[in-house]
């Protein structure tokens, strides 16, 4: 599904290096959690995978479904099944949720060779998927994310995930800003979306999300590199001990 090899990424125009040789392999249907201290490069990785501008890949490769990911524009990647749930979702005043989702869903469906949904089918799909993630129905009448609370914005990301049915979903701190009940509902939503052909990359700081969504692998990203990978137990250990022991190890391994 996704093969990242020795990826080096800088801020555009000769800025500092953020990812410093990151490698990761994700197979179809797997759930990978990525943890790591603030500023270690987690969102940068997510952004580079989704195709945000402002970064420069200086070396390494990312192969997604057998093709060089960097050959594709952001919107092509999305149509090929990559979905990023933003850490900070963007407000779009004047763009209605329904227009936004109709455009998005139809673009993706067209690319997959599926028929355009009728107005009725589309409305029903919106209704069902909103219920799946516990999105307040009144939010669908509003402009995208405009004036949404922090938690509503995060739920809206998962709602869009459910609508677009991606093959690789990247969740960047979707759990932050969610209350305890919302966390459970959103996690159940995500669990309901797990498929043998759908992989998840879940970026989080907290074990509690992983209590609900059981990852197949946990990776720790420190200073632009994955310094440790393991099973779900690694997340428990991080929760107890923090990252210091890993930072020391990574320094040692560099030396």
């Amino acid at each position: 599904m996704l093969e990242i090899t020795d990826l080096h990424v800088c801020v555009e125009d000769g800025g500092t290096e953020i990812l410093k040789g990151l490698s990761l392999s994700v197979k179809a249907g797997e759930v990978h959690a990525i943890m790591g201290p603030n500023g270690s490069g987690k969102s940068t990785l997510a952004s580079v995978l989704a195709g945000r501008s402002g970064y420069e890949v200086t070396s390494g490769s990312v192969v997604y479904k057998g093709v060089d990911l960097f050959e594709l524009e952001a919107d092509e990647r999305a149509r090929e099944g990559i979905f990023l749930a933003f850490q900070y979702p963007v407000e779009l005043p004047g763009v209605s949720m329904s227009n936004f989702l109709r455009q998005a869903v139809n673009s993706v469906r067209k690319h997959r060779g599926e028929d355009k949904l009728s107005a009725m089918e589309f409305l029903k799909m919106m209704k069902d998927r909103a219920a799946l993630v516990g999105l307040d129905p009144s939010l669908k009448q509003r402009a995208v994310n405009e004036g949404f609370s922090g938690g509503e914005k995060k739920r809206n990301e998962i709602f869009q995930l459910a609508m677009l049915e991606p093959t690789l979903a990247i969740l960047d701190e979707t759990d932050s800003g969610l209350d305890i009940d919302a966390l459970r509902i959103v996690s159940e939503g995500v669990n309901g979306l797990r498929r043998p052909d759908r992989s998840f990359l879940i970026i989080t700081h907290y074990q509690r999300l992983l209590n609900h969504i059981t990852p197949d692998f946990v990776h720790v990203l420190v200073d632009g590199r994955i310094v440790q990978s393991g099973s779900k137990d690694l997340a428990l250990k991080l929760e107890e001990q923090g990252y210091d022991w890993l930072k020391e190890e990574s320094v040692e391994s560099v030396n």
């Binding site: 952001a74 919107d75 999305a78 933003f86 998005a104 673009s107």
Partner: peptide
């Protein structure tokens, strides 16, 4: 905002 829309598959 442009990136957000494009990240949902909407062409430029």
């Amino acid at each position: 905002a442009l990136f957000y829309l494009r990240s949902r598959g909407i062409s430029f």
